[in-house]
Amino acid sequence: MPIPTDYTTPIRLSAKERTLTQLQKWIIDGTLQPGEKLNDTALAVALGVSRTPIREAFQLLEVQGLIQTFPGKETRVTTLEKADIIKLYAPLTALHTLAAELATVNCQQEHIEQLRAINASFNKHVKNEQLYEAMEFDEKFHETILHIANNQHILTFCSSLQMHIRRYKYIFIKRPNWESQAAVADHEAIIDALEARDAEAAARLMKHNLMRPIEHLDKMF
């Protein structure tokens, strides 16, 4: 289990939070491969923490579907299954589509400016091939719209689904640059629809954007 030594993590986090964040990143970006066995002692040494934060992180990672623990035996990174991805994207797309429609009612000019700034950062990281950071700004864009929609139930359900599909999203964003640039254009069109308070267009464009990765699923599996 090769473990990188040149990683960076956010400051002002507890050992548990820092450990969870780093393990999530390594699983999502493929540093820790699907099916790979995880050694809590080796990870503790690499991250400079005791085994307790590792074990606490493992519990949360299992809830998020990123690892699977076999008590008394081993812990492994879960594999990516095509059928599971399709099952996850269907409700996620439906919820984000509804959120885009609801957001047109609440969207103010400051929201529009915020979304344009986030999309500009997304575009910048895509062009610089900083793919993990680009993925985070893509998620921030969609999460901002969820907050504008002001429906806590949609936000909660989307948050749960989002973590399960992050690994696939990272694989998708690693595809040819023009495909990620298409996502930037999708975002701009969604912003325009929100600014025009066109609920039908916002919902349609959001659905198109969220379904884009599914269109490429057969090429990746």
Score class of each variant (00 low, 15 high):
residue 1 M to S: 09
residue 4 P to M: 01
residue 4 P to R: 04
residue 4 P to N: 03
residue 5 T to G: 11
residue 6 D to A: 11
residue 7 Y to F: 12
residue 7 Y to V: 13
residue 11 I to S: 13
residue 13 L to I: 04
residue 13 L to R: 09
residue 13 L to S: 06
residue 14 S to N: 06
residue 15 A to V: 00
residue 16 K to F: 09
residue 17 E to A: 15
residue 20 L to N: 00
residue 25 K to Y: 05
residue 26 W to I: 06
residue 28 I to H: 08
residue 31 T to K: 02
residue 31 T to P: 15
residue 34 P to H: 03
residue 35 G to P: 03
residue 35 G to H: 06
residue 36 E to F: 04
residue 36 E to W: 04
residue 36 E to P: 07
residue 38 L to F: 03
residue 41 T to P: 01
residue 41 T to K: 05
residue 43 L to V: 03
residue 45 V to P: 00
residue 49 V to D: 00
residue 52 T to K: 13
residue 52 T to M: 13
residue 53 P to F: 00
residue 54 I to F: 00
residue 58 F to R: 01
residue 60 L to P: 04
residue 65 G to D: 05
residue 66 L to C: 06
residue 67 I to K: 05
residue 68 Q to C: 10
residue 68 Q to I: 14
residue 69 T to Y: 12
residue 72 G to P: 04
residue 73 K to E: 15
residue 74 E to S: 11
residue 75 T to Q: 07
residue 76 R to L: 10
residue 76 R to K: 14
residue 77 V to E: 06
residue 79 T to C: 15
residue 83 A to T: 15
residue 88 L to F: 09
residue 88 L to S: 09
residue 89 Y to I: 03
residue 93 T to A: 01
residue 95 L to H: 02
residue 96 H to P: 00
residue 99 A to C: 08
residue 102 L to I: 02
residue 104 T to C: 15
residue 105 V to T: 14
residue 108 Q to I: 08
residue 108 Q to H: 10
residue 109 Q to M: 10
residue 110 E to F: 09
residue 111 H to M: 02
residue 114 Q to P: 00
residue 115 L to W: 01
residue 116 R to W: 07
residue 116 R to D: 07
residue 116 R to C: 08
residue 117 A to P: 01
residue 121 S to P: 08
residue 125 H to Q: 10
residue 125 H to N: 13
residue 128 N to C: 08
residue 133 E to H: 08
residue 134 A to M: 07
residue 136 E to Q: 15
residue 137 F to A: 03
residue 137 F to Y: 15
residue 140 K to W: 10
residue 140 K to I: 08
residue 141 F to E: 02
residue 141 F to Q: 01
residue 141 F to V: 03
residue 141 F to G: 00
residue 141 F to T: 03
residue 141 F to L: 07
residue 142 H to G: 14
residue 144 T to F: 01
residue 145 I to W: 01
residue 145 I to H: 02
residue 150 N to K: 09
residue 150 N to F: 06
residue 150 N to I: 10
residue 150 N to V: 10
residue 150 N to W: 02
residue 156 T to Q: 09
residue 158 C to T: 09
residue 159 S to I: 00
residue 160 S to A: 13
residue 161 L to I: 11
residue 163 M to S: 10
residue 172 F to E: 01
residue 174 K to W: 02
residue 180 S to Y: 02
residue 182 A to Y: 07
residue 183 A to M: 12
residue 184 V to Q: 00
residue 187 H to C: 12
residue 195 E to T: 11
residue 202 A to S: 09
residue 202 A to F: 05
residue 203 A to Q: 02
residue 206 M to A: 09
residue 208 H to Q: 15
residue 209 N to D: 12
residue 209 N to P: 04
residue 209 N to I: 00
residue 211 M to W: 06
residue 211 M to E: 14
residue 213 P to E: 02
residue 218 D to Q: 12
residue 219 K to V: 03
residue 220 M to G: 04
